[in-house]
Computed example of a mutant assay.
Amino acid sequence: MKKLSFFLISTPFLFFAASVSAIESPEYTVIHSESDFEIRLYRESAWMSAQADDISFEKATKNGFHRLFQYIQGANLNWSRIAMTAPVLTSVVPDAGPLHSSAYFVRLYLPVKFQASPPLPLPELNLQPVKWASHCTAVRKFSGFARDSNIIKEAEKLALSLSRSSWANSTDFLDKNAYSIAQYSSPFRIIGRVNEVWADVDGSQVPGCEIYESRAAH
Rank of each mutant, 00 (worst) to 15 (best):
F37R: 09
F37P: 04
F37C: 09
I39G: 02
R40K: 04
R40L: 00
L41W: 04
Y42S: 04
Y42N: 09
Y42A: 05
Y42Q: 08
R43G: 13
R43Q: 13
R43I: 01
R43N: 11
E44R: 10
E44Y: 01
S45N: 09
S45I: 11
S45P: 04
S45G: 11
W47E: 03
W47V: 07
W47N: 04
M48A: 09
M48H: 06
M48E: 07
M48R: 09
M48D: 02
M48F: 03
S49L: 14
S49V: 11
A50V: 06
Q51F: 00
Q51S: 05
Q51W: 00
A52R: 10
D54F: 12
D54E: 15
D54V: 07
D54T: 13
I55K: 15
I55H: 12
S56M: 00
F57S: 14
E58C: 03
K59A: 14
K59W: 01
A60C: 04
T61K: 10
T61G: 01
T61Y: 00
K62D: 12
K62S: 15
N63L: 02
N63V: 05
G64H: 02
G64R: 07
G64A: 06
G64Q: 02
F65Y: 11
F65H: 05
H66V: 08
H66E: 12
R67S: 07
R67T: 02
L68Y: 00
L68Q: 09
F69S: 13
F69I: 14
Q70N: 15
Y71N: 02
Y71R: 02
I72H: 08
I72Q: 12
I72A: 08
Q73E: 13
Q73M: 13
G74R: 03
A75S: 13
A75L: 03
A75Y: 04
A75R: 08
N76F: 04
N76Q: 08
N76S: 06
N76A: 07
L77P: 01
L77I: 12
N78A: 08
N78H: 02
N78R: 14
W79V: 10
W79T: 14
S80Q: 14
S80C: 09
S80H: 06
R81K: 14
R81G: 10
I82Y: 08
A83T: 11
M84E: 03
M84W: 05
M84T: 12
T85P: 01
A86I: 02
A86N: 02
